[in-house]
């Protein structure tokens, strides 16, 4: 899959940070990027499912952990990168527990570098999961026939 085809959702209500991420990704060649400022907005979006969701924790109405669980229960193949300005390890640990691939500490100086590294990791991870998924399906098919 080409970089330009990867579909990315950014769920962040801080305009500055949303824009920062978007620009960073655009500069790195990603094209298909959709911004949401609430978790609900992202979950309600009925368009084609994203490959990667970059998800902030402190959101209005529904917090990031909640959104994360909803995403993962709908489609476990979607890769979620969790954002945190929380400095609260509990939230971060929960995020990883619920299946976020990694988290970014927003105030960290090299946050954007980390983000790009993580994007690669997420893409690789998804490919791997797809493959495994296909193998599982094939296995099932052979057993039944």
């Amino acid at each position: 899959m080409k970089t330009t085809e990867i579909k990315i959702f950014i769920v962040e209500d801080d305009k500055f940070y949303a824009e920062l991420i978007r620009n960073t990704l655009v500069n790195d060649g990603y094209k298909n990027i959709q911004l949401f400022d609430t978790g609900k907005g992202c979950l309600d979006y009925k368009g084609a499912s994203p490959n990667i969701v970059i998800l902030d924790h402190m959101l209005d109405q529904m917090d990031g952990l909640h959104v994360l669980r909803e995403i993962k229960s709908a489609d476990p193949l979607i890769q979620v990168i969790f954002l945190s300005a929380q400095e609260n390890m509990d939230v971060v640990i929960d995020a990883l527990k619920y299946g976020a691939i990694d988290y970014i500490e927003k105030t960290e100086q090299h946050a954007m570098t980390r983000l790009l590294v993580m994007m690669d990791k997420a893409i690789q991870n998804q490919k791997k999961m797809w493959r495994n998924n296909r193998i599982e399906k094939l296995k099932g098919w052979f057993l039944i026939k």
């Binding site: 801080d14 305009k15 500055f16 824009e19 920062l20 960073t24 500069n27 100086q109 090299h110 946050a111």
Partner: peptide, 25 residues
């Protein structure tokens, strides 16, 4: 300065955009 350069990787347009956004916010 270092922080701004780091997040924008020296891209001037990007820098301006982020600075403007920061100022507005």
């Amino acid at each position: 300065r270092k922080g701004i350069d780091s997040i924008t990787r020296g891209d001037e347009v990007f820098q301006k955009r982020m600075v403007n956004l920061f100022v507005e916010e």
